Computed example of a mutant assay.
Amino acid sequence: MATRRAETSRESRRLLVEAASGLFAEKGYRQTTVADVADRSGISRGSIPWHFGDKEGLLLAVIEHTFLEMTQSFSERHPAGPDGLAELMEQAEAFARVPTTRLLVSLLADAVEPGSPIHHRYAELHATMRRIFTAWAAQPHVAVRLPDGATPEDFGLVTLSAAVGIYQQWRMAPEGVDLAHAFGALRLFLTAAVSPAGSR
């Protein structure tokens, strides 16, 4: 009986997080009510304080779930060789199209404050993504072709910054930014930066 109750509790929590993720991405955190989450999930409104304490606790659970999925996905991908950068750009574009990415970016201003409850999770996600890009640039056949004075760590930082910038511009003016083309162009620029002069 206890096991069944625990399973029911886990399923209720999963449904609430799933519903909140969609609503926060669609309507925004402030515009979404606890009643909205309960209605979409099919779980009683009283279950939210039971599982999460309050709406902010639910938001933290959504962020934790989203970050876990993203960091696991990036950590599992260590593409090498000449096609590795293309794979990384495809992965970055795919994440840009995930609805909850909109929520994560909208909360970025709060996340940069050291005292924010979500600061450390954002920092961890960014560090993971930088490590993946850095690892690609640190491969011997790539590192020897980095511009003078540039390091694989520089490559990771600049690549992540450019990818986030593309996403922000796409969100602000989707009619003026072709997401696939923009990430493709970023790949071409980065490839050119680490290619021998005669092969560009």
Rank of each mutant, 00 (worst) to 15 (best):
P147N: 11
I166N: 01
T134S: 14
H78S: 11
H126C: 13
V98Q: 13
L103T: 06
S195M: 09
S73N: 07
P147H: 12
G198S: 04
D148F: 11
L146H: 01
H65F: 05
E153A: 14
G176D: 13
E56Q: 15
G156Q: 02
E26G: 02
F155W: 02
G198I: 02
P82K: 11
R121G: 05
D148L: 08
L107G: 03
P196G: 08
R145M: 10
G184Q: 04
D83Y: 05
A192K: 11
T33N: 04
T32D: 01
P99G: 10
E69F: 07
L88T: 00
I48C: 09
L104M: 15
A123L: 06
H126T: 10
R77L: 12
E26C: 00
R30Q: 11
L68H: 15
A127L: 10
A123C: 05
L15G: 05
H181R: 15
T66G: 04
P99E: 06
V62R: 02
A127C: 05
F155I: 00
F155E: 00
S73H: 11
A92V: 05
R10V: 06
R10A: 14
V164N: 13
A163D: 01
M129A: 08
T32A: 04
R200S: 11
P152A: 01
P82N: 08
E64Y: 07
P174N: 11
W136F: 11
W136C: 03
H119K: 03
G53H: 12
E26R: 01
A20N: 02
D39H: 12
S75K: 10
T151D: 00
R171E: 14
V142S: 02
Q91R: 07
D83R: 12
H78G: 09
T33D: 00
A80V: 10
S116P: 04
Q168L: 14
R171P: 01
M89D: 10
D154V: 03
R10K: 14
E90N: 12
S106R: 13
H65K: 03
W170G: 06
A197T: 09
D54T: 02
A162M: 14
S195K: 01
F133W: 10
Y29P: 04
I63P: 01
D148H: 13
E175P: 00
R171Y: 15
R121F: 10
T134Q: 14
E26K: 02
L190G: 06
H126Q: 13
L186R: 05
E26L: 08
D39L: 05
L60F: 15
A150N: 00
P147A: 08
I63N: 04
A182T: 12
L108A: 15
A86V: 05
L107E: 05
